[in-house]
Each structure stands twice: as structure tokens, then as C-alpha cells.
Design a protein around this nucleic acid. Sequence first.
RNA 1: UGCCCCGUGGUGUAAUUGGCAACACGUCUGACUCUGGAUCAGAAAAGUUCAGGUUCGACCCCUGACGGGGCAGCCA
Length: 555
Amino acid sequence: MSENTTANKSKNFIYEIIDEDLKTNKWGGKVHTRFPPEPNGYLHIGHAKSICLNYGIARDYNGKFNLRFDDTNPEKEETEYVESIIEDVKWLGADFRNEVLFASDYFDQMYLWAVELIKKGKAYVCDLTADEIRATRGTLTEPGKESPYRNRSVEENLSLFERMKNGDFPDGAKTLRAKIDMASPNFNMRDPIMYRIVHAEHHRTGNKWCIYPTYDWAHGNEDSIEGITHSICTLEFENHRPLYDWFLDQLGVHHPQQIEFARLNLNYTVMSKRKLLQLVQEKYVDGWDDPRMPTISGFRRRGYTPEAIRNFAEIIGVAKRDALTDISLLEYAIRDDLNKYAQRAMAVLKPLKVVITNYLEGQVEELEAVNNPENPEAGKRLVPFSRELFIEQSDFVENPPKGFHRLVPGGEVRLRYAYIIKCEEVIKNANGEVVELHCSYDPETKSGTGTSNKKVKGTIHWVSAKHAIDAEVRLYDRLFTVENPAFEENWLQHINPNSLEVIRNAKLEPFLKNAKKGERFQFERNGYFCVDTKDSTEHKFVFNRTVTLKDSWKK
RNA sequence: UGCCCCGUGGUGUAAUUGGCAACACGUCUGACUCUGGAUCAGAAAAGUUCAGGUUCGACCCCUGACGGGGCAGCCA
């Protein structure tokens, strides 16, 4: 099974490790991965990469995939985040059998295991303050100093640790530390902290605990309890692996293999939860799901599909070297997906009125338009045509640059699915701005009739003035003006002031009045758009631009 | 300065485990087109950070440099 499904795609180094493990029967043929988010923020596209990797492995090898909240720090974690994360993981299509797991459910077991380490003389209660611990940890080149509390008796440690648990001491008064090696060149091995005292309410365990396990102590425990085989995490945990291994070895329990890969970095955005939180809290954006945010909920609201994000994850691959991925890969993925099934529509974003002077006043024709040239089964629809229309302001230019083949004074252009028109007169206002065009149409050129051999270079979209519906359209651009804002001293100063352009009077083809929230369309020649799930109402349509169409017209 | 990891076209990844570098995005031509989209055909673009070594042969193995990243939270 596994061999078959993974046979012809090129394998990343993690798949190779798993193949080898299967060959040597290291895990009895089992493959079990997990995605362990801390519920302290919303998931972003980097997490999506991890979810796709972990879930993809379980899927490809017919193994299991767990969703587990690593909720070991009550001071930063909230239920709101838990809920958003579950929604995002489901939306992405990762199957966790609807079993939501929590590290906090293992607190009792972890406590017992900590007691076990104390009994083995592998852990001790330390009275040093945070500052003292930092001061005695040593430096990059010098070893640390052993804590004066390092050699307390097992009995004393046991009793002290129990009192820590019972709440006898204030925050920070004591810690439980692993007794390893203060001279280790790896900082993580210099008697790392396993438990700290925190009198805070936990989002799930309430006030049951006032000691909480640290990541290093907790994480391997969690993986072990769940029977994880391959514990995949990002590069910054590489130095923690010896500690991960040490804890599990002391305990002698199921010992998963930790494997590290490079996290995703996308250009023109930021990916750290801290920075994203700041953007939200300081109102640079509209919330975690602002369509400009690189969060999963932001992409969802923007109109991205789970398929596109999964394909993107596939395209970028998995490796150990850190990289800065070009956003164009993501944009390719969503265009490629939407192109296949997005219903086409004509929508004029910035309207310019056109009067067809030789077209009968009051006459209306219903013209046939193709719903999706990529999929004939999508059928056709009728679009009303009349004497007064709107076209895109940018589709008319008085003094066109070389190569421009849309409408110009005295020039002709095809109105998509309708007629060829000729620009006879340009009407301007007092400021000299073009406000209206008077054109004539050629009745012989009606679409599909083949009664004319006339050829024109350009075809533009349009909408009948009296039939059009109004909408607000939000055009999004990259959130930052620099490729890697995280590298900038004042990263907030590089926010793109034009990352959102709101168009309040866009004119849409009438059938769009039935568009439902979240529904996606291609506005021909403009890009892919979706109905905003939050702000769109029956009376006021709001569309978000997901991504533009590729535009090969230069200059 | 100590330890760990990484270095392949502009970008992201590959290279049958040692046989003179492939795919995708992007870019540029051209064809077609009632979306300057899609599609199709083609092109440019790295000689694999560098220097030694092993070998008939090195992107791959070894050594050393150089470059990048990570680590001194009672965050994860």
C-alpha cells in the first residue's frame, strides 16, 4: 500500500526515513504522526505545510494522524484559539477522526513520570530564582554551575515536588529540574526545567494544577503516550532532540523518532505568531481572518481553496534548509485550481459609461455566454445587452501606448459575447476627464452568428447599465512592501499602504445577485473573486479578490 | 568564542544512493483564442559556495575554508 502510493513521486527525506523504518520493521509496520499546535494564536500557511506533511504521511502510509493541542502554558492559551484551529484543520481536509487530543489530559501521567525520575535520582527540586538559573547556566563557551540544590535527597525532592503541586509555593519559587549535565555544550542538557509553578487558570483543567510541564519535558511524553512513531517538528527543535531522547530513555517508554524540517517562509509577509498577533492587536489588519493575513482563516476568507493550499504544500516540498518561498507559487496553486471550475462572470470594477448611439432605446437582448470554457458541462447563461453599458475605465485609452489593443478614439473592440463597437465620441467633464463614450455597434457582428468577417484585436467585458447590480469589491495586494519584513529592524514600517483598495461602485452581471457567501467566481479579465463571508449582506454585496489573472500585457 | 544544522538556475525542490544536473513556478519567444486568461510549441537560465583529497568517474564520500541559520525563556 505505502509502496504503491508513494512509488512514483519523488520522496522527501522524511519519506525516505519512513521507508527505511518500514523495511527494518522498526515500528512494527506502524506509521503515526501528529500535528501539535499550541492554542495561542491562529494557524497560518506555515502550519498548513506541517499539517499537510503530517497528515499526508499518515494517508500515504495508511497510518494515523493525531490533532493534539500542546496546551502546557495556561498564560497564553485560549479556547478561541482551540476552536479556530480545529476549524482550520478540518477545512484543510486532514482527518483526525474527530478526536481532539490535549496535552493537558496527560498531566497526571506526566506528574507520575516526573516522580519516577525523582526516584531514580534524575530530577530535583531547585530553589534558584529565574535570574539565578540564568546566571548559573553558563555561556556559549563556558559550562554552567551546578545548583546548590542539585543533590537533595530523593525523599526531600519527593516531598517538595508534591508541595509544589499542592500549591504551597508562590509562582517561580521553585522548579523541578532534570539532573543531566551543567557542562554540556548543548544548553538544553544543562539541567533543564521540567516543571514551573504557575498559579493560573488553564483553559481546560481550570485550577487543578499550579505546576505546568515545560515543552521539553511534556512533548516527548505526549508523543509517547499517543504511540506516535515519527514526531515531526521544525528546525529550531534540532538542539532539543538529545533532551527529547534523554527523557524517554530514562523513562524507558515508547520512544518516537523526532525529525526536523525547515518551516515555511513566504516572501512579502510575516509568519511568526507573535508578529501576526501584533498586526491583529494593533489593528493593522481587520482580525486574524483578514484576507491579507497569511493565516489559514485569512486565505479561506480571501477565497483560497483547501485543494490549492494542499497542492502548494506538495509543490514546495520538504527539506532541511531554510528558504524563502516566492508567493507566486501559492498564486499559481490557487489559479490552477479555480480555473478548472470557477463560474465566469462579467464585472466592471471601475465603470465607464458607454452609450451605443445606434442601438434602439429600450431594446434589450439576452445574449448567450459560456459559464466556463474549461468545462463545457457548466453550460451557458444569458446576459442582458442594452443601449447603455459600462465598460472598464482602463479598457479605453485616449492616447494608447504601442501594443494596446482595446478601445481608443475611432477604434473598434469586441464586447465579449456581444457586438463589435466603434468609439465615435469621447465625452469629458470640465476637468477634462473622460466620463462617457458614444459608440456605434455593428449589428452584423453579433457573437456566434458568424455573419461578419470583421476582426478586432481586443475583446473587453461589459455590463448593461440598467441591469447591473452594485457591489463593493475589495482588492488585496501583498501586506508588505519588502520581501522579508521579518529581517527589517522596523518591520511594521514596511506595511504596504495599498494592501487594500475598496471599490464601492463596481457593476456586476445580474445573475450574480444569487451569489452565496463564500462562493467563488472568475470575473473575466480581472481575476478570481469570492463573496465575503463576513461583511456581505443581501443589500450590500461585498466581493474579495482572491488573486488576479495572470497578465502578460506589459506596460 | 562552544555545540547543532544547512549550502544545486531568479524561486522552491529532484538526481535511480558514485555515472558529467531534472521538474515546477517565474521570465522571454511564437502559435491559437471573442478572457492580453487557459492551452500548445519553444528558449534563456545553475555546472551544484570554494579549495584540496579518495575514485576510472563526485552534487553525492573525506578534510578544510567560506557563507547562512539555530541555541544562553520557569515560551513553544
